[in-house]
Design a binder for these strands. Structure first.
Lengths: 227, 227
DNA sequence: ATACATACCTTACATCGTATGGTACTTTCT
DNA sequence: AGAAAGTACCATACGATGTAAGGTATGTAT
């Protein structure tokens, strides 16, 4: 049944790619803090030390995990219209980071060819649209800060197991002296967050709009002053 | 010399506050990943398990550390002019998170009375200025996302020990095939980042301006439509 | 004098990343 | 054919980690 004479379905051989893929799955399911070489090895049907044949270190795995996350993000075409291109990239990045919250505080830290390729393409799109180098840097800094920061906030919402924020919000509001001590927070909880249909994720669109419009204004002002 | 009969300068007794303060200092100096109960105890002149008399767990220490970081941030007066108040709070938060980079990905996760007090005050300032609840939520989400995201990016810059980004940028640019593979990134490195006087921190002001102006426009539009 | 609270310590356990040094099996070379 | 080298795995061990369990000294209160 398992492995006879010829190569049958014994166990997929471990590879760097398979290890990284399994590590991403483990981190998605149980959180990054519970990703250990031993657990990862077990998932791959192997002992911990065997991983080191395919991978330099745990850090190496983390690098690979970030690369795979970056690769999930939509990259705009170099000649795309800049505003919609940046908007779609931002939405895509937010969705991807929502799927892999453990990656949020790591994407900026780990510089790999994949992340550089990504950055280079976005800068290229802006330059192609006529942005100066300085304005392109402004735009990237602003937009990426917003996207990563929003993902960070969204990932730390006290959601219950069904992904709803209502129940935990009610719990917090029900605490003794809560509404007296924090009246504005309580008001926002009752009048906004607990309203049917409210989802924090919807806040993303507002900020994205503000930022893109602001960038457009700054860009056209720059173009006009150059003429 | 050390401790004779009467109480002399033997050792300050450990308290929760002193433990937290020492933990912050340790994390600032060596990074959060090297903060352990044993090292912290050593810094306090005590054994690891003695800390548990003053503190519930390591997690309890982390909560206290975040509270102390939040307390470093400037809180606007409730009746302050909203735009400058939000701007000053943002600048202050960024400075504080710059001093304690380990706190960036933790501030949103740990909800303590201190953080709620902080949030409540800022919401109060906006409501006092005439913001609707929904617009106040928009403003907070946008601004805090930006500040935290920017801090995250700033904290992960490859600075050398003197805090300069130039040397490491040069190293990266000097890598084989770098300028060919990533022309726009290389251009930005040479034409912007390596220029004398450039500091990534200065990018913060641009984004903050865009966001505050955008919020003002949205706020006045909301007020007008209500009239 | 007895009791209790306070502040510390010792030991021990499970878990972590990984250094070191194996063991099999397969491919390549002569 | 036999020898050598390469490939993929495993067992053991070390020094770290957080903390449970159960001491041991000093108080201070009765």
């Amino acid at each position: 049944m398992t492995s006879t004479t010829t190569t049958t379905t014994a166990r997929e051989p471990v590879t760097r790619a398979r290890a990284i893929q399994a590590a991403v799955a483990l981190a998605d399911a149980d959180g990054i803090e519970s990703l250990s070489m031993r657990k990862l090895a077990r998932d791959l049907g192997v002992e911990a030390m065997s991983l080191y044949y395919h991978v330099k270190s745990k850090d190496d795995i983390l690098d690979g995990m970030i690369e795979s996350v970056i690769d999930e993000m939509a990259l705009p075409a170099a000649d795309a219209e800049w505003k919609s291109a940046l908007g779609e990239r931002a939405e895509s990045a937010r969705r991807v980071l929502g799927r892999h919250p453990w990656a949020i505080s790591m994407v900026d830290q780990r510089t790999t060819p994949t992340t550089m390729r990504h950055l280079d393409t976005v800068i290229g799109c802006l330059r192609h649209a006529g942005f100066s180098i300085a304005m392109a840097a402004h735009a990237m800094s602003l937009l990426d800060s917003y996207v990563h920061g929003f993902a960070l906030q969204e990932a730390s919402l006290p959601l219950d197991e069904s992904g709803d924020i209502g129940a935990t919000t009610e719990d917090i509001l029900a605490q003794q002296g809560m509404t007296a001590a924090f009246p504005h927070l309580a008001e926002m909880g009752v009048e906004l967050i607990l309203q049917p249909g409210y989802a924090y994720g919807n806040e993303f669109a507002f900020g994205l709009r503000v930022i893109l419009d602001g960038l457009e204004a700054a860009f056209t002002a720059e173009a006009r002053s150059r003429a």
